[in-house]
């Protein structure tokens, strides 16, 4: 029993961290804490998803926010125009993001290294510019929810609460997904691709389909998060849905905690958001928040490129077996 437990230590640690963040506002009965926890959990979900592509497969997507934004728009549209409920909208957002990832993946996963990164930036900008012109989605002004829609959920207060619980649920799902991928045969193939794609192909890893599935898996949850995020937000517009900076923040969080590990992106996202909260309320750093994040990022890249968990794994080989 204890050996089995230890074997999956990373999963328990990861789920534990997510649960602590999720339970904190419920225990403290504090709506402000709930807002903070919502932001942290959505960051965890986005970073853990991207980690499947970036950390496990080694493909650096600089435009991953496109799935968050696209899922958000599709979800918003189904609620606002088609009158679907939040559950259906969330599914629609996730499926839309997955479909987009599948189609894009067929085309751009042939590119490697910086060319892939550039293509993802280009795609994010192309989709943003397209939606800016797309009348059914409201063009540049976007869409705003009719306040009455929250009535179906017992009013805005209850809707906010529901959205928070959904977010906790999504984060738990993404954590389990991330752990499953990391410890599965499929995941071993992805790791092989990350280390040496040509060698992996020679060893029998069906690289095109493995990469494409990794891309799809890394897109589904961001699409769902987008759908509930904008439902909660009440409005959506291209600038909010596709900010390049969010893409890069996801990468920073992954780097901070440790790319290619299950626990790393969770700790990284929580740490990054906590730090940013602190900087935002501190009168001294308020204006320099972005610059300080920049300094932090540079220090990580230059001195601890493996992130916290990666550093621990490197420093203490004994923990390598269970700390992933």
């Amino acid at each position: 029993m204890s050996k089995k437990f230890f074997q999956h230590a990373s999963l328990w640690l990861s789920l534990g961290t997510v649960l602590v963040i999720g339970l904190w506002p419920i225990v403290t009965h504090n709506a402000l804490n709930r807002e903070t926890a919502f932001t942290v959990l959505s960051a965890v979900a986005l970073a853990s998803s991207l980690n499947i592509l970036l950390g496990y497969t080694g493909y650096v997507s600089f435009g991953h926010v496109v799935f968050f934004g696209f899922g958000g728009y599709v979800g918003f549209y189904t609620i606002n125009v088609l009158g679907w409920n939040i559950w259906m909208a969330m599914l629609a957002g996730g499926l839309a993001a997955a479909l987009l990832a599948y189609l894009l993946g067929v085309a751009i996963l042939r590119l490697r290294g910086a060319y892939f990164a550039l293509a993802t930036i280009g795609i994010n900008e192309a989709v943003r510019a397209f939606i800016n012109n797309f009348a059914p989605f409201g063009g540049p002004t976007g869409m705003t929810l009719n306040f009455k829609i929250y009535k179906a959920y017992g009013g805005a207060m209850h809707a906010l609460q529901l959205v928070f619980y959904i977010m906790v649920g999504l984060t738990i799902i993404v954590t389990i997904l991330s752990y499953w991928v990391r410890t599965s045969k499929f995941g071993l193939g992805l790791l092989a691709i990350r280390e040496d794609e040509d060698a992996a192909e020679v060893m029998g890893v069906i690289t095109p389909s493995a990469k494409n599935w990794a891309f799809v898996l890394s897109a589904i949850i961001p699409g769902m998060v987008g759908a509930i995020y904008f439902f909660k937000n009440g409005t959506i517009e291209p600038g909010l849905a596709f900010p390049l900076r969010t893409s890069i923040e996801m990468i920073v969080m992954i780097m901070l905690g440790g790319q290619g590990t299950v626990l790393g992106p969770i700790l990284g996202a929580a740490g990054y958001e906590t730090m940013r909260d602190y900087l935002l309320v501190s009168p001294l750093f308020k204006n320099l928040q972005l610059a300080i994040s920049g300094v932090l990022l540079l220090l990580i890249v230059l001195f601890i490129p493996r992130g916290l968990v990666g550093w621990l794994r490197q420093r203490y080989p004994k923990v390598r077996r269970w700390l992933i």
Partner: peptide, 9 residues
């Protein structure tokens, strides 16, 4: 990321 960090600063 190193060059992006310069951008952020």
């Amino acid at each position: 990321l190193a060059t992006y960090s310069v951008n952020m600063m």
